[in-house]
Simulated scan of single mutants.
Amino acid sequence: MNRYEKLEKLKSILSDAGSAVVALSGGTDSTFLVSVARGVRGLRLMAVTVSTPYMFSSEVDDAVRFCLGHEVKHREIKMDIPSAVLLNPHDRCYLCKTEVMKAITAAAREGGFEFVLDGTNADDLREYRPGLRALREAGVRSPLAEAMLTKEEIRALSREAGIEVSDKPSNTCLLTRFPHDTQITPAGLRLAEKAERIVSEAGFPGARVRVHGELVRIEVRDDQFDRITLPGVRMKLSGAIKTLGFRYVSIDTEGYRTGSMNKKEEE
């Protein structure tokens, strides 16, 4: 199937649902899902965003802005850091997703909605995603994956639909900026967010800032590496990040890679 045929399949899935809550993170996938769902005749829809201290504030803002601009019923649920992830354990993604989906499914039951949907796409099913187990346990459906839509197809369809976040870089929560078995605090999370915003606004979108105590390690894409190592650029970045209270700023020579803070099995 091409992406247009998959889009029609997605609409059919949503139409059959009757009523649904969409877990809206503010990223491309869940925003696209809400965008399509709002156009499905007869579907009673609500978007729910769970706001935690380890979410980027810009993600929550994007979710709120989209729903306001498209007249989608939206609810924001504020949640503190769950005790299960305070020490950033190895299975943090599963533990966090479990708590988030508990909150969203409770909101769905309260509102009389039949299904809870999320933005997992077909590519996600081929990757290591511990949170998928929590989705299954909570009975959450993933219509994008059911329609076999890939990330690139979703981006292409989002661009064609004029969705503002169509080319927004994929992101993960701020817990992934810290090593496992590290005490997580709201203050530390905000510092990591500010440091990463400095790097992004300097012209390195999609870069990651990893925090190791007083040291910040910057990971950039291969095509960004030459520029960030220019003396004027790296010194300016280093100076700006140090104003946040960090003592050392380093550039990771291996560049950006997913899961770089995950423990290796032999550890």
Rank of each mutant, 00 (worst) to 15 (best):
L157M: 15
A138Q: 10
V140T: 04
A138D: 11
L149C: 09
R141P: 03
R155Q: 14
R155M: 13
N171H: 00
L135G: 15
T150R: 10
E164I: 09
L175G: 00
R177W: 05
V140H: 02
A161F: 02
F178H: 07
F178N: 02
M148C: 13
L157P: 07
V165C: 10
H180C: 08
S158I: 11
P169H: 05
E137I: 11
S166N: 06
T172W: 00
M148R: 15
F178C: 05
P143M: 12
A161K: 10
A145F: 03
R136F: 02
I154R: 01
R133Q: 09
L144D: 06
I154P: 01
A145H: 06
E137P: 11
T172R: 00
V165W: 06
V165A: 10
E146S: 09
G162K: 14
G162Q: 15
L175F: 01
L175H: 00
I154F: 01
S166Y: 11
P143K: 12
E152Q: 13
P169V: 10
A145C: 07
R159P: 09
A161W: 02
T172E: 00
D181T: 04
A138K: 12
I163P: 07
L135A: 15
N171F: 00
E160Y: 09
L149P: 06
F178I: 08
L174E: 02
A147P: 12
E164P: 03
L174F: 10
L149S: 06
L149H: 07
R133A: 08
G139Y: 06
A145V: 09
R141K: 14
A161H: 03
D167H: 11
E152Y: 12
V140Q: 05
E160C: 10
A161L: 12
R141I: 03
R159W: 11
S170M: 05
F178T: 04
L135V: 08
L132Y: 01
S142A: 11
L135F: 05
E146A: 08
D167R: 15
M148K: 15
A156N: 08
G139P: 13
A145W: 03
G139K: 12
P179M: 06
E152F: 12
F178R: 03
S142Y: 02
T172M: 01
N171L: 00
